[in-house]
Design a protein around this nucleic acid. Structure first.
Length: 616
DNA sequence: GGGTTTCGTTGAC
DNA sequence: TTCCAGTCAACGAAACCC
């Protein structure tokens, strides 16, 4: 078949941005018609153009991986065959068939809750969400090709009678809690992965009560229905990976049980499309299919040598375990939240004032969310989506943990400033690297002890970020014994040296140009900055104790205060031109910025998979 | 050269 | 009329730092 001419006749066929893989309830959908509508409504838009760029990028990845594959010699393949066989033996030895896992998935959860709340919606095509995006579609709506993650205006085109209901997460949370009460009776340590999905280790119930997998699943589904009025689908299998696949088989309101038997697992997995496995999405599916011809889990094993040759250790381990039907069987330890974020989409704008206003709103939301959970973080990431849908993230690691709106906004503003001018349609902020609650420490985790501080000779380096002294939470440097003795007065003096926030690059430049100190350890003779050694060894500015023998260290310390002083000066624009003449060469923009698909340069595929080649 | 940080990507719901 | 989300985690590579 001439795919080129086909592509020209039916361009929508090559536009498989979304909605191409069947979801439950979409079996009878006219896929081509849906694809055509989506294509027609998207074509020419900036979103569409960006999707085209992404598609091209994936194609490039496929091509590059194909070239890597072509370079493999017979010797290489024999080598990786041995590696693969070893891995398979190890994985097989780790296979655990003694556990029984159950995965539950509520049927069209948000839509079902809305129908329960308003029974007149029953039997009608319903979408939960808005014109820009819908979260869930009822089974009646799915018959038209409407589904989650589809923009509302396209959904309406597919189904003109579609009823839209706005999301109401309080309602969904309430019903989710009801389901979790039921789950808790079967496994007190159940793992909830979202409001409507959970994994339960039912090994105990199964054996203690002498119930079969079928019986446990049926009983649980009955209990959920009795206590919520909602239906769910259940999968039972020897591990979580398989249980999840199983819960999708007889959706909605059904169940599927896979026995704890190796033969049954291998039969089940052999013809299973890899896309059914959690963790394998569109890109991985195409990559494996187009480069290695892998479409089923069994194909993973058949191509194990190539899988090991072309992918990283972690990836190949995962792919081979997929081929063997091996998944997680132990309940993971209590997993702590690792990040918290908030983002907002708005009408694209390049109005700086408006953008900073929105950033302030987002910072406020993030701060409020963090405070609700008593979180303090030191890694702030700004996410931007330009009007052409290009996504950028810019991050900064701070020297202390923060959580207030003001502090978040200060750092977020610096990050945004470095990117402007820009027309944006989305901004978001994410905080990570949380303070360890157990330790209850708010000191700078990257901070050096006093001796390290002195020995490093970098008193003006980024480790000593003067910005961060400015908050109320000024436990700054208290880790050091000497400084922990600082009383309130000295801390106050510390704060007196605070200048307006500056970019780190500016501070670094400052350090470089702070050599105008004199040998007495005073700051260039300027009375405002001059330090005295009280009692012969205590810094009059901050209280640091440095005995008289430490002349070099004293000079370094004076240097630090000079840097602080100059920052203060900079605030009043006195010394700016003299001191910061090199600033323009050190803006955050000059930092590394990877070539992305949006820059017209593709990241070579070998950049993604070099680790996989390390055994060559 | 190894550890850390930053950034982009992928995937799930 | 409305015109493609929000949140979280993980991985991997390159840059950065020492």
């Amino acid at each position: 078949m001439d795919s080129k001419s086909e592509g020209e006749d039916r361009p929508w066929q090559s536009y498989h941005t979304a909605y191409t893989n069947a979801k439950a309830g979409m079996e009878g959908v006219d896929k081509e018609k849906v694809q055509k509508v989506v294509y027609e409504m998207s074509k020419g838009s900036k979103y569409f153009e960006n999707e085209q760029r992404k598609e091209a990028y994936i194609k490039q990845k496929i091509e590059n991986l194909g070239q890597q594959r072509a370079k493999l010699t017979d010797k290489d393949i024999a080598h990786f065959q041995k590696i693969a066989e070893k891995k398979i033996v190890e994985l097989e030895a780790s296979r655990d068939l003694t556990k029984t896992w159950l995965h539950t998935d509520m049927d069209a959860f948000y839509a079902a809750v809305e129908i329960l709340d308003n029974p007149s919606l029953k039997g009608k095509p319903l979408a939960v969400g808005g014109m820009s995006m819908i979260c869930t579609a009822s089974y009646e709506a799915r018959k038209f090709g409407v589904r989650a993650a589809m923009p509302g205006f396209i959904a309406r085109k597919l189904c003109p009678d579609l009823i839209f209901v706005p999301t109401n997460f309080d309602k969904y949370t309430h019903f989710s809690e009801l389901t979790r009460k039921v789950f808790g009776r079967y496994d007190p340590n159940f793992i909830a992965t979202s409001l409507d999905e959970a994994y339960l280790n039912v090994t105990e119930v199964w054996s203690e009560r002498g119930l079969s997998g079928e019986e446990v699943a049926a009983e649980l589904r009955g209990a959920i229905y009795d206590e919520t009025g909602l239906t769910c689908s259940v999968g039972v299998a020897p591990n979580r990976m398989l249980a999840k696949v199983c819960s999708d088989i007889n959706k909605p309101n059904g169940q599927f049980i896979l026995p704890n038997d190796r033969g049954a697992v291998m039969t089940f997995i052999s013809s299973l499309p890899i896309r059914k496995i959690g963790g394998i999405g569109k890109v991985t599916e195409y990559l494996l299919r187009d480069v290695l011809g892998i479409t089923t889990c069994d194909d993973m094993l058949k191509n194990s040598a190539l899988v090991c040759a072309l992918f990283s250790d972690l990836s190949s381990d995962f792919f081979l375990s997929v081929g063997l039907g091996i998944g997680g069987t132990h309940t993971p330890e209590n997993r702590m939240r690792k990040s918290i974020s908030t983002e907002r989409t708005f009408t694209a704008t390049s109005d700086t004032i408006l953008l900073f206003q929105k950033l302030a709103d987002i910072a406020e939301t993030l701060s409020s969310d963090m405070q609700k959970e008593n979180l303090w973080g030191r890694n702030l990431t700004l996410k931007l989506k330009t009007s052409s849908f290009e996504v950028r993230t810019r991050a900064v690691s701070l020297q202390k943990y923060i959580s207030s709106k003001e502090e978040i906004l200060t750092h977020a503003t610096n990050l945004l400033k470095a990117e402007l001018p820009l027309s944006l349609r989305l901004m978001g902020l994410r905080m990570s690297q949380f303070r360890d609650e157990d330790k209850h420490c708010s000191v700078d985790p990257t901070q050096k002890t006093l001796s390290e501080f002195i020995l490093s000779g970098s008193s003006h380096s980024k480790e000593y970020d003067s910005r961060d002294i400015s908050s109320e939470n000024s436990d700054f440097l208290l880790e050091d014994k000497n400084l922990s003795e600082l009383d309130g007065t000295r801390e106050k003096e510390h704060r007196c040296l605070i200048s307006e926030p500056e970019s780190s690059s500016k501070r670094e430049e400052l350090g470089d140009s702070s050599s105008g100190k004199d040998t007495n350890g005073t700051c260039g003779g300027n009375a405002n900055c001059e330090i005295q050694w009280v009692d012969g060894y205590i810094c009059s500015k901050c209280g640091i104790e440095l005995p008289s023998g430490f002349e070099e260290e004293r000079r370094e310390h004076a240097d630090y205060h000079l840097a602080q002083f100059l920052q203060q000066e900079e605030k009043t624009h006195v010394a700016r031109d003299k001191v910061y003449h090199k600033l323009e060469h050190s803006s955050p923009k000059s930092k590394r910025q990877k070539a992305s698909l949006h820059g017209g340069k593709f990241i070579p595929i070998d950049a993604f998979f070099t680790k996989g080649k390390k055994n060559l």
